[in-house]
């Protein structure tokens, strides 16, 4: 790894606790510099903003570098995910564990895909709008929105209906999904590898 990469990674890593401390400090002593005109406050806010901007730039640069440079990616991500390939057996076991991780991640992604597409709602109609004497309506919908759509909802026959149960795609944010998948990949790989090492039997 290049010397500048090592330095940037160190700055990035050491920046995390600084940012957490700054976040906690900002949370505890809420109030903008306008509210608190003292010079110390202004200095703290400006310094914090500067650190945050630099750290954000650094994180973008490092993540782009991880995508572009194979050597850098191998070195950094192997360390982050605790991949050890000390001899041919461990290289082979890594392959087996990675296959397991890949397939389970794919299964999770397929499951999440379907969950994000399905919309289900069970609603109760007002007394005057019954359909064939029925007061409850089950609505099923599959939507494949590839870009975020904040347009108006479809005004159907059940616009006055009161939702009893409603499910409209995944209830968690895309950030949470990505974070969970990253954690899952690391956990799944390490569990599979540990099991294979314990068994000592992958032929």
């Amino acid at each position: 790894m290049k010397r500048c990469d090592t330095t940037m990674l160190q700055i990035f890593s050491y920046g995390i606790p600084v940012l957490v401390l700054y976040g906690v400090y900002a949370y505890l002593y809420r109030g903008s510099p306008v509210d608190r005109p003292e010079t110390v406050w202004r200095l703290i806010y400006n310094f914090g903003g500067l650190i945050l901007a630099a750290w954000m730039l650094l994180s973008l640069y490092l993540s782009l570098r991880l995508m572009a440079s194979g050597g850098f990616r191998d070195e950094v991500l192997s360390r982050m995910t605790f991949i050890k390939e000390r001899d041919e057996r461990e290289i082979m076991l890594t392959g087996v564990a990675v296959k397991k991780t890949f397939l389970t991640s794919l299964a999770i992604l397929i499951f999440l895909f379907f969950l994000s597409c399905f919309h289900v709602s069970l609603s109760k109609l007002p007394p005057g709008e019954t359909i064939d004497g029925k007061t409850r309506v089950l609505t099923l919908d599959i939507s494949l929105n590839l870009i975020r759509d904040s347009g108006p909802q479809d005004p159907g026959a059940t616009k006055h209906a009161v939702d009893i149960v409603s499910y409209e795609g995944l209830p968690i944010t895309s950030t949470a999904v990505i974070l969970l998948l990253i954690l899952w990949q690391i956990l799944s790989y390490n569990c599979a590898m540990r099991r294979l090492m314990r068994e000592g039997n992958a032929t």
Partner: peptide
């Protein structure tokens, strides 16, 4: 030989067949 002890254990126990080179 340049491998880990776990590999020697696995070979002796019949749990791992080494490569031709090894």
């Amino acid at each position: 030989i340049g491998v880990t002890r776990a590999t020697i254990i696995a070979i002796e126990g019949g749990g791992y067949n080494p490569s031709l080179e090894l």
